[in-house]
Design a protein around this nucleic acid. Structure first.
Length: 592
RNA sequence: UGCCCGAUGGUGUAAUGGUAGCACAGGUGACUUUGACUCACCCAGUCAUGGUUCGAACCCAUGUCGGGCAGCCA
């Protein structure tokens, strides 16, 4: 099927070098990575890099990659995204790293175990053959996270603070000025324990108190100035319900979730570099028995002409600039899939961009378009379809005459299969393929010229028919039947070949012509990206296509010869009535 | 102007003290029953200045430019 030519495992990057070093040192029994999406939107091309890195590292080292929902903020998250995210990940790695996708037994939470006479907590991993499994979920660790917070308080590493949000901001200082200690910083362990328990019990309103790490208010790293660990939120959580009104923050929950799952390598994007000391501080302050996970950062993938943040993509959806998260113009995994772009294509493109710490790079979207065309050229069957038809009459054929022609399904195939096409007196050709006053080097149909109807025969131009207003209504030509394949004059050469469909044996199908969503290279850098929306990103036409396309398989991609690649939309098509989405046009070196 | 990070053709990357390579984009031509594909050729780079070294894209120093950080978001 796919001729996926993914980079061999010889390709390396700084992260693979680090992991290879650890493997050589036998530092870990098994390499364990994780992909931790927050269920607050659909996954996009940027996530694809993280997914492919995490699963790729696991795949190359006989390890595992945990899918973990990072659901510590009930105000922004929703269970409705969980299924879509899970589906997209599985689809992206299918046939490539399915074995590495790790989950846990249903309902599993961290359990106590003895390690070197010390009590440790870990959540078990389910084997891929187990029946009842589910994704790892940070909120399943809330109890254990709470207990760890108690430990932190007992060790004098955390305190309950009564300062308001604005006061905390003031006390934090600025980029240049050091911060000041909270007046509540030196509460006794007993008082902190009592207050924290009462926070959990719901005695205080939102924002009245918080649990903070006791680190260093004068640190040049803002994230070390007694950062918050827990905040009060009297709001139900999509997974834990109303059990909690106290929720941990990312910096506290993430490193410990990694630890509880036995993650060895925790990869994230560059903006978390400044958080790494905090990641390490939390883990180190708890004096944990097992080997600690470590965080490594890499640069995000930002393709040109696309938006790449969930916040912004959500706005496109909310304001109806697109039909949804899976609109074929969206850079989401679901959108690309509907567009006809396979997982193998995404993998080849994303992996091909590499992993670095260069932080200001924009990847030319043309690099992805190249992969799309290259893969589809190998796999897509060819069909004939006319987007903007103009009628052409072959005056030397009888009205009911049908001439059978043979068309090749895919010239790239080892042993190309063929199908039948019917040439009739009346056909449609692309209106772009005729010019009454042709521009220089025009190789198509023009007055007095000749052109070949693909897979049929050469035709000679006779006459142009116009209506009263001067609009072209029909083109009259003569078919040179002896130039058909196998006939005496079949090797006759003409400069142009055009596609066509029989006017009496064709189907009309709704076809969506997509173009890039934005007119500028970096819409995310725009004051307001909405002003950079491409007004022509979607054009709907009723195309005339050859009969076989009525049975197009949703999700399959076809090349409409000389036009581009089209896929039958899997949500809007119905049996016998496909709706086509244009995946991408063919490369066009002539320009028009 | 606090701290941290980064800098290789137009773009994305490789070279880890020893010939600056690959891909995309762009250009020219060949081929063509898809102006597609394919093929051939061309274009074009180590941010700057010093230093270490027989030898520096790589190590050091300084500068320049770019990015990140002051959510009870992740």
């Amino acid at each position: 099927m796919s001729s996926e030519t993914e980079s061999p495992d010889t390709s390396s990057d700084f992260i693979r070098d680090i992991v290879a070093q650890h493997v050589a040192e036998k530092r870990y029994a098994k390499i364990v990575t994780r992909f931790p999406p927050e269920p607050n939107g659909f996954l996009h091309l940027g996530h694809a890099r993280a997914i492919l890195l995490n699963f790729g590292i696991a795949r190359e080292n006989g390890g595992q990659c945990n899918l973990r929902f990072d659901d510590t903020n009930p105000a922004k998250e929703d269970a409705s995204y969980v299924d879509a995210i899970t589906h997209d990940i599985k689809w992206l790695i299918e046939g490539w790293a399915d074995e590495q996708l790790a989950s846990k037994p249903k309902g599993a939470v961290p359990v106590a175990q003895q390690i070197n006479d010390r009590t440790d907590y870990q959540v078990s991993t389910a084997s891929s053959s187990d029946a009842d499994t589910e994704a790892f979920t940070a909120s399943d660790y809330f109890d254990q996270l709470y207990n760890y917070a108690l430990d932190l308080i007992k060790k004098g590493h955390a305190f309950v603070c009564d300062l308001s949000a604005t006061e905390i901001e003031e006390y934090r200082g600025s980029l240049k000025e050091p911060g000041r200690d909270s007046p509540f910083r030196d509460r006794s362990v007993e008082e902190n324990l009592d207050l924290f328990e009462r926070m959990r019990a719901g005695e205080f309103p939102d924002g009245a108190k918080s649990l903070r790490a006791k680190i260093d208010m004068t640190s040049p790293n803002l994230w070390l100035r007694d950062p918050l660990l827990y905040r009060i939120r009297h709001i139900a959580h999509h997974h834990t319900g109303d059990k909690w009104c106290l929720y941990p923050l990312y910096d506290y929950a993430h490193c410990l979730s990694d630890y509880l799952e036995g993650v060895t390598h925790s990869f994230c994007s560059l903006e978390f570099v400044v958080h790494r000391p905090l990641y390490d501080w939390v883990l180190a302050s708890l004096d944990l028995p097992r080997e600690l996970p470590h965080q490594y950062e890499f640069a995000k993938l930002i393709p040109s002409y696309t938006l790449m943040s969930k916040r912004n993509l959500l706005r496109l959806v909310a304001e109806n600039h697109v039909s949804g998260w899976d609109d074929p113009r969206m850079p989401t995994i679901a959108g690309l899939r509907r567009r006809g772009i396979s997982a193998a294509i995404i993998r080849r493109f994303v992996i091909g961009t590499g992993i670095t710490t260069n932080d200001d790079s924009i990847t030319d979207i043309a690099a992805m378009e190249h992969v799309v065309r290259d893969e589809l050229n190998q796999s897509a069957e060819r069909r004939l379809g006319v987007l903007k038809p103009i009628k052409l009459v072959l005056t030397n054929l009888a009205p009911d005459e049908v001439i059978e022609c043979e068309a090749i399904n895919n010239p790239q195939a080892e042993t190309p299969k063929k199908r039948k096409l019917s040439l009739t007196r009346e056909v449609f050709i692309e209106s772009d393929d005729f010019a009454e006053i042709p521009p220089p080097k025009f190789r198509r149909l023009k007055p007095g010229g000749e052109v070949r109807l693909k897979y049929a025969c050469i035709i000679g131009f006779d006459e142009i028919i116009k209506d009263a207003d001067g609009n072209v209504t029909e083109l009259h030509c003569t078919a040179q039947l002896d130039t058909r394949s196998g006939e005496a004059n079949s090797s006759k050469k003409v400069k142009g070949t055009v596609h066509w469909v029989s006017a009496t044996q064709c189907h009309e199908v709704t076809t969506r012509l997509y173009d890039r969503l934005f007119t500028v290279e970096e819409p995310g850098a725009e004051e307001d990206f909405v002003t950079a929306l491409n007004p022509d990103s979607l054009e709907v036409v009723t195309a005339k296509v050859e009969p076989s396309l009525a049975e197009a398989i949703p999700g399959a991609v076809y090349q409409f010869e000389r036009l581009g690649y089209f896929t039958a939309d899997s949500t809007d098509s119905s049996p016998g009535k496909p709706v086509f989405n244009r995946t991408i046009t063919l490369r066009d070196t002539w320009g028009k």
